[in-house]
Amino acid sequence: MLTVEGLSSAYGRIEVLHGVSLAVAAGEIVALVGSNGAGKTTLLRTLSGVRPATAGRIVFEGEDIHRLAAHHRVARGIAQSPEGRQVFGPLSVDDNLRLGAFRRQDGAVRERLEEIYAMFPALAERRRTPAVSLSGGQQQMLAIGRAVMSKPKLLLLDEPSLGLAPLLVDQVLRAVLDLKRDGVTVLLVEQNAAAALAIADRGYVLEVGRVVHEGAGRVLLQDPKVKAAYLGV
């Protein structure tokens, strides 16, 4: 579904991604783990088109999209829930979710809205509340729900569990597995490598802008080098 070849990206003259290559097959959950500053967020933002690629190709469903504007990529089915609770603060929970479907006004918006509320009941109780007054965990759920509202083929999740209480982490990861069951392909970025690799089919380890390991989620979990570096064992 998604093939990334030799992708580079830079902030000014400082290159942060040095020719990253990876692939995500339809129906998979792929985890991307690595320490702070490894370039995980930059990679996702380059995939979504909010950061320019300086080299390489992003092939989505057989077509190179690396020059497409961000809104065209959303229209083709790539949605992202960004890192750090990037909600539309003054707008209500309902409006935040409806805007998630900005590129997919297909008559089933209301249905999907109810699906999101079923997935995250805490949001359903606060439909009219401005997003800014939700708790951190609820804002995170809102950001994920907003991305799902566009009915994506490929969902990019950036640190969905960051700063959440353990109980909420479980809830979010379960939601990711539910989405997979519904046929959504997921590329999951996590600092919480153990949790991410546990639910992922495959994983990539990113280190200072390069892929240094790849393999099945369970295999990476057992890899002594990965264990030492990212699992704190």
Partner: peptide, 9 residues
Amino acid sequence: LAALLVGIN
């Protein structure tokens, strides 16, 4: 950023 990511031009 979030506006770009939901596909707003």
